[in-house]
């Protein structure tokens, strides 16, 4: 029972810290991507050249240039940063692992693969927004899945709060 509580009573202090770090690092990454595009920094574009194909017609434009990563990647980064921020702001609540999160992550990963594969083989032509939205869904579900499943140990106070919460829920 104690072990189960550890597994299922989610957002502990350590996880909150992870969410804060994730939100901060993600915001810095997004800010740097927008700055690179706005200032047309060649060095910045080449920094991300191994992380993404950077094709201009598949990336969002910003200011005089386009972003240094494609629409799918920016969707993933936005989703990850946003869900870290949500987890951080929801810190007062005790989350429990919902099997739907894993299912949504699986569905979004398969949807991304199908989107990529169907376009690769010429079955259909996706748009910049479909790629961004699929990336966003993947980013959000990935972070929520990771945060809610991570095996952090809780301190006594947190365990007590979690067990009270579980009792209340029956």
């Amino acid at each position: 029972m104690r072990g189960e509580r550890r597994e299922y009573a989610g957002l502990t202090r350590s996880l909150r810290r992870v969410a804060i770090y994730g939100a901060m690092l993600g915001s810095m990454l997004l800010a740097s991507l927008f700055l690179i595009a706005w200032n047309e920094w060649e060095f910045g574009h080449s920094l991300f050249s191994h992380l993404c194909h950077q094709k201009s017609e598949r990336s969002f434009g910003f200011g005089p240039s386009h972003l240094a990563v494609c629409s799918r990647c920016i969707g993933i980064y936005f989703g990850m940063t946003g869900s870290c921020a949500i987890a951080w702001l929801q810190a007062k609540k005790v989350f429990t692992l919902n099997p739907w999160v894993g299912m949504i992550l699986g569905i979004s990963a398969i949807a991304n693969l199908l989107d990529f594969g169907f376009e690769w083989f010429g079955f259909y032509q996706n748009t910049i927004w479909t790629r961004a939205l699929l990336g966003l869904l993947t980013g959000i579900s990935l972070v929520l899945f990771v945060l809610l499943r991570s095996p952090y140990r809780m301190d006594r106070k947190e365990e007590k709060a979690a067990s009270m919460h579980l009792l209340e829920r029956g």
């Binding site: 990454l29 060095f43 080449s46 920094l47 991300f48 050249s49 191994h50 992380l51 990935l142 899945f145 990771v146 499943r149 991570s150 095996p151």
Partner: peptide, 24 residues
């Protein structure tokens, strides 16, 4: 540029992969 790229790309890719494996 390659040094910075290696650090940046490994940080992002490794963090995602490692987090997924550690919760799965």
């Amino acid at each position: 540029q390659q040094i910075f790229t290696v650090i940046l790309a490994s940080g992002i890719g490794g963090a995602i992969g490692g987090a997924l494996a550690s919760v799965l």
